[in-house]
Amino acid sequence: MKVAYDLHIHSALSPCGDNDMTPNNIVNMAFLKKLQVIAITDHNSMLNVLPAMEVAAKRGIVVVPGIEVNTKEEVHVLCYFPTIEEGMKFQDIIYNSLPNIDNREDLFGQQLVLDKDDKVIGDIKKMLLNSSEYSLEEILELVKEHKGVLVPAHVDRNSFSIISSLGFIPESLNIKAIEAYDLNKLSKFNKILELDKYKIIKNSDAHYLTHINEANHYLDLEATSISSVVDYLKDME
């Protein structure tokens, strides 16, 4: 079945995310845009995923537990998990690997933790935009240990992408899916990436509500479920 999606959305927990990016606002905007599956993928943390899942259940929208990790090489990768429990175990490892440097709210914005009613219940002080101490290969192994899947983020961008940082996608990673920010720009990378080898997902990387995808992009899934999305990105059909 064809399922409308956006698997890269930042909440107010990401310092670069607008404070209006609350669980209810994100889910309700996704509902208005007729999306069926979304993922909250904040930088190096998953603390706002569960409240979004709770809100989305009332709207009939599936929220895939996700996180955007900044590797040691400064490559942004999206990591998705079949359960919130596995995702939170992984996020604890990633969060603890970040350097103990305080966030500069005046420069980067707040890092707000919210509940299902959009009440602020915390403000993370450690800077979430920093790089993990783990390499890309190490993070891939950690994702696998927690039954998840890794997708290189915005491979067509000039910064924080696997292409801008490494120049290629190592065969040893056995990557099955990649994320494009601009599909037209991505086509220019065909000689480097051999695009036919990958499933390509088109996400918004939204930091503002209006930037969340319209229902213009679809996954071909067995069912509208978290496990179906994760299996699809693992190339298990």
Rank of each mutant, 00 (worst) to 15 (best):
T22Q: 08
P23E: 04
I26H: 01
V27R: 02
N28L: 12
A30H: 03
L32P: 04
Q36P: 14
V37F: 00
V37W: 03
I38S: 05
I38T: 05
L47A: 08
L47S: 13
V49H: 06
V49P: 00
M53Q: 09
V55E: 07
A57R: 13
I61M: 02
V63E: 06
V64W: 07
V64H: 05
V69E: 01
N70F: 00
T71H: 05
E74C: 09
F81N: 08
E86H: 11
M88T: 15
K89E: 15
I93H: 14
I94P: 15
Y95M: 08
S97L: 06
S97I: 02
P99Y: 10
N100F: 11
I101R: 13
D102M: 14
N103C: 14
L107W: 15
Q110K: 15
K116C: 14
D118R: 09
K119M: 11
G122Y: 13
K126F: 09
M127L: 10
L128T: 01
L128E: 04
S131L: 06
E133L: 10
E133K: 08
I139V: 09
L142R: 03
L142C: 01
L142N: 02
K144Y: 03
G148P: 02
G148N: 06
A153K: 01
A153C: 02
D156M: 01
R157F: 10
N158I: 14
S161G: 02
S165H: 12
G167D: 13
F168M: 14
P170W: 00
